[in-house]
């Protein structure tokens, strides 16, 4: 039990760190947004996993081609994806300081999002008119209707929140109170909402 002092070890911990905004060279706002998105994505993953579990456990599942208007869904998807592209343009414009252009593209994005929501509302109304509820539906096992309403509804809620965020950002940009960093955050969120749809679309409507 002699005194062992290992300079070797002390040195091993001498990795200096300059402080500041590293390690990912991002601001904390952006890092936090990313973490939030990961968490939220996992929530969607949870829903989709439940959906998959219930669907596998069901004796049968309705034929999607008969139930859904796939053209409408394709249109919805297009609207949402193009709004993603316009949003990316807006973010880029903000980075270069072209605020007029930012506002214009934000409005385009808003239009895309609203079009998506409108079509989704139409789809829902069609479903409800046909007699689908959370408890049952005319096409097959009850979990079909329930998971449809729950998952598309949850995504729709995300789109709606996104639209509110976009509206606020648009107003702020028009009045010169926005910064590029803020736009980037809104852009991240909007891209996430798009991306989730890219998962829901095939898993729910195609496969």
């Amino acid at each position: 039990m002699e005194t062992v002092q290992t300079i070797e070890r002390t040195e091993a911990f001498e990795s200096p760190w300059a402080g500041g905004v590293s390690p990912f060279k991002t601001s904390w706002q952006k890092l936090m947004m990313w973490l939030f998105i990961i968490g939220d994505a996992l929530l969607f993953a949870g829903f989709l996993a439940i959906y998959g579990f219930v669907r596998l456990a069901s004796p049968s599942w309705p034929n999607r081609a008969e139930v859904f208007h796939l053209e409408l869904i394709a249109l919805m998807t297009t609207a949402l994806i193009s709004s993603g592209a316009t949003m990316a343009t807006a973010v880029e414009a903000a980075r270069r300081g072209h605020w007029r252009m930012v506002v214009r593209f934000l409005l385009l994005t808003l239009a895309g999002g609203l079009a998506f929501l409108g079509m989704q509302a139409y789809e829902w109304s069609q479903f409800i008119a046909a007699g689908a509820t959370l408890q049952s539906n005319p096409w097959g096992v009850p979990p079909f209707g329930a998971s449809f309403f729950l998952i598309t509804g949850f995504h729709g809620a995300h789109v709606s929140i996104g639209i509110v965020i976009l509206l606020i950002t648009a107003v702020r940009s028009a009045t010169g109170r926005s910064r590029a960093g803020g736009l980037e955050l809104a852009g991240l969120y909007w891209a996430f909402v798009d991306l989730v749809w890219v998962f829901i679309f095939p898993l729910f409507y195609l496969i």
Binding site: M1, T3, V4, Q5, T6, E8, R9, A12
Partner: peptide, 9 residues
């Protein structure tokens, strides 16, 4: 009195 401080890796 401390008789052993750090172990080597």
């Amino acid at each position: 009195r401390v008789t052993f401080r750090l172990a080597t890796v």
